[in-house]
Design a protein around this nucleic acid. Structure first.
Length: 200
DNA sequence: TACGTGATTGCCT
DNA sequence: GGCAATCACGTAC
């Protein structure tokens, strides 16, 4: 049986890459009017200090201010005018860095996810950052939320552990694209990205 | 005020 | 595997 106890801030690694690895296997919990929706994190990407591909690279702005909060806050933004992306802030307060949650293995509330996504196929419900945000109905309205306490959206402990964790370069970048800052569960069918990056 | 850009997805072939 | 859709934000004018 899973525990839905929120992660405590004190147990989060400060370092961005370490936190990206730490979050593997943890649970994203989402409280919706229809019920609870949750999924296990199977893919993350770190956007570290001084990262030219990171949104905090040019300093704090109204949009990116959540990345500068203490670790464990939500940074949500809209990409390509269509897809919301869920990130977790990292590093000390005032330092802009974070982790993109790229894919979830659906656990609870799968019928709700199907409704939110408008598709049936289990494997596609939360495989990809925009897809998981849609499945959990996450948008800019949740930006800045504390993910270390139970509420509309939070991070929870897992009981089973992440299993094997592999790493690769990150997906979809044009700058600083060569660093190995993507983490995934090899062999897990709910991981996104091209086959060439998912060896294991 | 205008324009370029992007941590993607879904549909078509 | 290729490509269009679509818009908030940041920067420049």
């Amino acid at each position: 049986m899973r525990s839905d106890r929120p992660l405590s801030r004190a147990e989060l690694p400060i370092d961005t890459a370490a936190l990206a690895r730490f979050l593997m296997g943890k649970i994203v919990m989402r409280a919706l009017p229809e019920g609870l929706v949750s999924g296990r994190i199977v893919e993350t990407e770190a956007y570290i200090i001084g990262d030219a591909a990171g949104h905090a690279y040019r300093g704090i702005t109204p949009r990116t201010r959540s990345l500068f909060l203490e670790p464990g806050h939500a940074y949500v933004y809209l990409a390509y005018g269509i897809s919301s992306m869920l990130n977790v802030s990292s590093e000390l307060p005032g330092v802009g860095a974070g982790i993109l949650i790229r894919a979830l293995e659906p656990l609870d509330g799968i019928p709700i996810m199907r409704r939110n996504r408008g598709i049936e196929r289990l494997r596609d419900l939360a495989r990809g950052p925009g897809r998981l945000a849609a499945a959990l109905r996450i948008d800019r309205g949740l930006d800045g939320l504390d993910l270390c306490r139970e509420g509309p959206l939070w991070l929870a402990q897992d009981s089973t552990g992440p299993g094997e964790i592999a790493e690769s370069i990150r997906i979809g970048l044009s700058r600083d694209a060569d660093r190995p800052l993507r983490f995934y569960s090899p062999g897990n069918p709910f991981v996104s990205g091209p086959t060439s990056l998912n060896a294991g």
